[in-house]
């Protein structure tokens, strides 16, 4: 009887839960902003898709993490399904397009990508799509009479072949550890009727031990071509002399690397002073001996 009572209470409690605001929220899902961009680092490499998820908090957008995003190629079907990714703390997620799609990517002139968020507990369903015209950059680096020139040719895939892409904004950069450094005299260059743009390289910057640096020509966030780049390694940097001072005898080194002068002179002083102190202690021993001898006399 008692167990029946408990069961009835539990049942009614569950029913009442359905009417609590927690469940009521299902009807009031927030709006999610979903952005999709296309990136390709090098010619011939498989491109990458980047998603960005944000939601409005007050007057500004804040990144949303742990949102699952489905990515599709050309059509939102199982055939075009590229994969599912989850947004990071920064609200971003990346997917390298799988090898299975290499043939489609090679043969298509226009690439269509779709990103969707569906059946999310907190956010309404949302989708975003982009259409990318396939393009690539040919980078040439030349040095003649000590003049270094960077030349980029932007080509677009049209009618089964690569054609020059005029009026396209491009920039030349040196790839550094944390971000890119502008390598041209201008920040942006526009390609001419042959799809070409060039700039002189005048920077004096450190490279690796042999002076190698990576120079790239980039198209950033272009509505038609996405973000694409092409880079080359070249010996235009200053060879880097490694700072080995931590391995040397310095004032800031560890105790086993004390500078010799600091090891020799203070120790000489310490040894000299303490020799006298030990001599003085020895004098006390002598005084004791004299005292004992005097007693015996």
């Amino acid at each position: 009887m008692t167990s029946l009572k408990i069961l009835s209470v539990a049942f009614f409690w569950c029913i009442s839960l359905l009417h609590t605001p927690v469940f009521a929220q299902e009807a009031e899902k927030a709006t999610l902003r979903l952005d999709l961009t296309y990136q390709r680092q090098e010619n011939g490499q498989l491109p990458m898709l980047k998603t960005s998820t944000k939601t409005k908090a007050g007057k500004r957008f804040e990144p949303v993490h742990d949102v699952e995003i489905n990515l599709f190629f050309n059509e939102e079907t199982s055939k075009g399904f590229l994969g599912r990714i989850k947004s990071s703390d920064k609200g971003t997620a990346f997917l390298t397009i799988p090898d299975d799609f290499t043939y489609e990517l090679d043969t298509s002139a226009v690439l269509k990508f779709i990103a969707t968020v569906t059946n999310n507990e907190k956010f309404e369903d949302v989708s975003s799509e982009i259409e990318i015209t396939k393009a690539q950059i040919e980078l040439t680096l030349n040095e003649e009479d000590s003049i270094r020139t960077m030349k980029a040719k932007v080509l677009v895939f049209e009618e089964g072949g690569w054609k020059p892409a005029p009026e396209t904004e491009i920039k030349f950069v040196v790839k550094r550890l944390l971000s890119d450094l502008n390598a041209g005299e201008e920040e942006l260059y526009t390609t001419d009727e042959f799809g070409e743009a060039s700039s002189e390289f005048t920077l004096h910057i450190p490279g690796d031990a042999e002076g190698n640096i990576f120079i790239a020509a980039k198209i950033d966030d272009n509505d038609v071509y996405g973000s694409i780049s092409s880079s080359k390694e070249v010996k235009w940097g200053t060879p880097l002399q490694k700072d080995n001072s931590f391995a040397k005898r310095t004032l800031f080194a560890t105790r086993d690397k004390t500078p010799l002068w600091l090891l020799i002179f203070p120790n000489l002083i310490i040894i000299t002073v303490w020799s006298f102190i030990f001599y003085l202690i020895y004098q006390i021993i002598l005084l004791r001996r004299i005292g004992k001898a005097h007693k015996n006399v």
Binding site: L280, Q283, L287, I290, K292, H294
Partner: peptide
Amino acid sequence: GSFWKGTAEQFRLSENAIKIISIM
């Protein structure tokens, strides 16, 4: 200080030691 007997040699050694310490 039981060993101190006040002999001339003890005074000499002690004075010498005090002089060394004074300088050092």
